[in-house]
């Protein structure tokens, strides 16, 4: 080796090129894209014990045999507000279907804000902001809001989605749960 610096420069250059390629490949991909897949898919759904806004209890066991869509949300979250019309439309259309249940669980909010939102926006599906809601949010490994899961009638997590859903998304989530 006549000039060791030349070899060192070559080595450093090669590392830089590899590094630049990795960065270039990563540019433009959403850093949160991977988060779209939940680790719970295909596993038994974690149980929860929630309080409805009227004070009655709701546990996952009560819902056995039904397809459950769980929607984690907050009143202050803008994407959740964006999602609201789709939820309202879908809920109105499937209200009568006893094999389908929609449960809205607050993640990080004040009780008064949840009650006010449920009243003004007619969110008949949502539950109270209490300890059970926080525990459910952890058990489902939620990483933000809105985040939604489908639980099949036999109690498996079969669908998950991060971010606002459209009515088509909701239909797809329900269909997955029903094994269609």
């Amino acid at each position: 080796m006549k000039h060791p610096f030349r070899w060192i420069a070559l080595g450093v250059g090669a590392i830089v090129v590899v590094f630049a390629v990795i960065l270039a490949v990563n540019v433009g991909t959403d850093p949160r894209a991977e988060l779209n897949t939940s680790r719970l898919l295909g596993k038994p759904a974690p149980s929860f014990t929630l309080t409805r806004l009227d004070g009655t209890r709701l546990t996952l066991a009560d819902l056995a045999g039904k397809t459950v869509i769980v929607n984690f949300w907050n009143s202050w979250c803008v994407p959740c507000r964006d999602e609201l019309p789709a939820l309202q439309t879908w809920y109105a259309a499937h209200r009568a279907d006893t094999s389908l249940v929609l449960v809205g669980i607050p993640r990080d909010d004040s009780s008064s804000a949840i009650r006010a939102a449920a009243r003004t926006d007619g969110m008949g599906w949502t539950v109270a902001n209490d300890h059970g809601a926080e525990a459910a949010s952890l058990a489902y490994g939620t990483r933000g809001q809105p985040e939604s899961f489908t639980i099949s009638p036999n109690g498996q997590v079969v669908g998950s989605i991060i971010g606002p859903m459209t009515t088509a998304d909701l239909d797809r989530m329900a269909a997955v749960g029903q094994g269609l």
């Binding site: 993640r107 990080d108 909010d109 926080e134 525990a135 949010s137 952890l138 939620t142």
Partner: peptide, 8 residues
């Protein structure tokens, strides 16, 4: 001090 952290 987020709710999720408190719960965890």
């Amino acid at each position: 001090s987020a709710a999720s952290a408190r719960e965890q």
